[in-house]
């Protein structure tokens, strides 16, 4: 270093002077890290770009009105129809069945773990839920088709081998851990002073949970339900395996039907040429799916803003 050079003396000390090289490399690293963070934005842009551009080609051949109102979905037939409602009905029915299982069960488990269970029970129960949430959906699909459906057929002999009901039930079980763990977090965040206030009035545990803790945690619970809906709508493999893949405009869970997601799988399994109308349908279906989940996401954010926790 040049500390001995007299001409440098009037400057601050060398050791306090800014090190230009170090600055450059610091800025460079910061830039690289920012690029990594920007990948997530690129992913979103990529998703929107792919879905919109391919759907754009699709809608040059099919009118949006037909897409939304036609009651048949036969894109690969000579007499092609593109009524997305056929797939949406399967998605709606299976999600409905799933949520009818997952919301009550998840909420009950959350209330139980947050308000009733002691720490020992919680320490056992939470990993169990985590493991359940980690099971691959293809395994759940296997379970729905080869275990749950035969069991259901004992009670409901007329249930076909593929049905929205059994896929939906298993999907519900799959979603339980998400709802339970998010709801429990929300309820545990409710301050103890509120509970003490309720107990001091002579409330029992359940009364406190339902009348004080749940309302206080409402926005968190709503967010967990919304996430559950997103999961149900986007779930693919359980339906592809256990609900059958034939398009069927139905509101009856006892029937087999394709959903938006299982249709995409079915097409991808085949060998459709890049750029064909059949190839484009899966992007139009994917765009529909993304818009549905987007609507629920926005709804969730709105709910959270409207019912901010006010404790």
């Amino acid at each position: 270093m040049s500390a001995n050079n007299p001409s440098d003396l009037p400057v601050v000390s060398d050791r306090l002077a800014k090190n230009a090289m170090r600055n450059v490399s610091e800025r460079l690293i910061e830039g690289l890290l920012l690029c990594a963070a920007a990948v997530s934005v690129l992913t979103t842009l990529g998703i929107v770009y792919v879905l919109v551009s391919e759907s754009f080609h699709f809608f040059q051949n099919v009118s949006i009105v037909d897409f939304l109102t036609d009651t048949q979905w036969t894109p690969l037939f000579d007499d092609a129809h593109f009524g997305i409602m056929v797939l949406v009905s399967g998605t709606v029915v299976s999600s409905f069945v799933a949520l009818a299982v997952a919301i009550p069960m998840g909420t009950i488990i959350a209330i139980y773990l947050s308000e009733f269970a002691n720490s020992k029970v919680r320490e056992v129960a939470k990993p169990i839920l985590e493991l359940l949430g980690g099971i691959p959906t293809i395994v759940f699909g296997y379970f729905a088709l080869l275990v749950v459906t035969p069991l259901l057929q004992i009670i409901l002999p007329e249930l076909p081998g593929f049905s929205l009901l059994s896929a939906g039930l298993v999907m519900g079980i799959m979603i339980v851990p998400y709802i339970a763990s998010l709801s429990e977090d929300a309820m545990r965040a409710v301050p103890m002073s509120l509970r003490e206030g309720a107990y001091a009035m002579g409330s029992t545990r359940l009364y406190t949970a339902i009348h004080v803790v749940v309302p206080a945690a409402f926005s968190g619970l709503a967010a967990s339900y919304i996430l559950g809906i997103s999961r149900a709508v986007g779930e693919t493999m359980i339906l592809a395996v256990a609900a059958g893949m034939q398009p069927n405009l139905t509101w009856n869970p006892m029937e087999p039907a394709a959903t938006i997601t299982s249709y995409i799988v079915q097409v991808a399994l085949g060998d459709l040429p890049h750029g064909s109308i059949g190839y484009q349908t899966i992007f139009a279906a994917g765009l529909t799916l993304l818009l549905i989940t987007l609507v629920f996401n926005i709804l969730g954010q709105w709910l959270r803003a409207k019912f901010r926790e006010n404790y």
């Binding site: 770009y49 879905l51 996430l227 991808a268 992007f283 994917g286 799916l289 993304l290």
Partner: peptide, 20 residues
């Protein structure tokens, strides 16, 4: 963005990958 991506169905990632 990150929190929204977490809620995007996995099959949509498949479509992204197919296109890109």
């Amino acid at each position: 963005n990150i929190s929204n991506l977490a809620a995007v169905p996995s099959i949509v990632y498949g479509l992204l990958a197919l296109g890109i």
